[in-house]
Design a protein around this nucleic acid. Sequence first.
DNA 1: CTAGGGTTACAA
DNA 2: TTGTAACCCTAG
Length: 291
Amino acid sequence: MGAPKQKWTSEEEEALRRGVLKHGAGKWRTIQKDPEFSPVLSSRSNIDLKDKWRNLSFSASGLGSRDKQRVPRPKAPSSSPSPSPQLLLLPATNNVAEASPPEDCEKSPQDDKTPSPKLYSSMILEALGELKEPNGSEVTTICNFIEQRHEVQPNFRRLLCAKLRRLIGVNKVEKIDKSYKLTDSYAKRALAPMKDPSLKKKDSAKSSKAAKGQGLFTAASPALGAAEAAATKVADAEAKSHLANEHMMEVERIGKMAEETESLLELASELYERCSRGEVLTILQVAHREF
DNA sequence: CTAGGGTTACAA
DNA sequence: TTGTAACCCTAG
């Protein structure tokens, strides 16, 4: 009760950065035992160092543009507001994936017209609804599935876990031993539509209109169930065609991604070799030279 | 001991 | 309500 959350101070953060530079990432125990950082990181465990470094890495490579300066220190005893931004050392992360613009280059204007910035919830529900795994889908599977459709952040997997947990809270998702799956009640609610999450209630009039294209039943039929079934079939067919189209685009996209990956690999290799020789250079230098 | 998934608490 | 940071738990 005394320590709800102990936020990292600038001093601790800097000590961690320097420690990683000295001993390398992964030697958390060594860094923590180092007499140089020991006084600063005395209240931190090696696991804490690891976790902090993980967050730090993701933040640096992910949304670096957004300054997310949180409250400096809510319970700062010796709070000397001396930010030390002199050291802008980025953690050694492969942010090559973020070298390209964050926005997806191929985006059909008609496909997604959601003004909302980014709703991961809809992506997750979409993925889960499409996977339809009876045993539930593993988080890796879900993550992989979504990555195929949308460009995601490097820390998306972590976001996914948090988001999944939220969805469980509202009974939309069910967790089965490491896997996640749509709740039956929610799965029945959302069958075909995956375009717009804010789907309004269907009117019977629309259903009859949709049924006319089938020619299998007469629209004048009093059978409401038939109309409903027809509407469902139409919607399903539409969803399937839409899906097929997307899959084709997916194949294309994957091929393109493979090419890009190869290029990036070459770039990375050259970077590594040069750095091994002691050269100091930036990615932009190499990139400019290569491409 | 480290890496990673998962959970909880806090802030916008 | 959503995203993030700190914390916890477990496998290798």
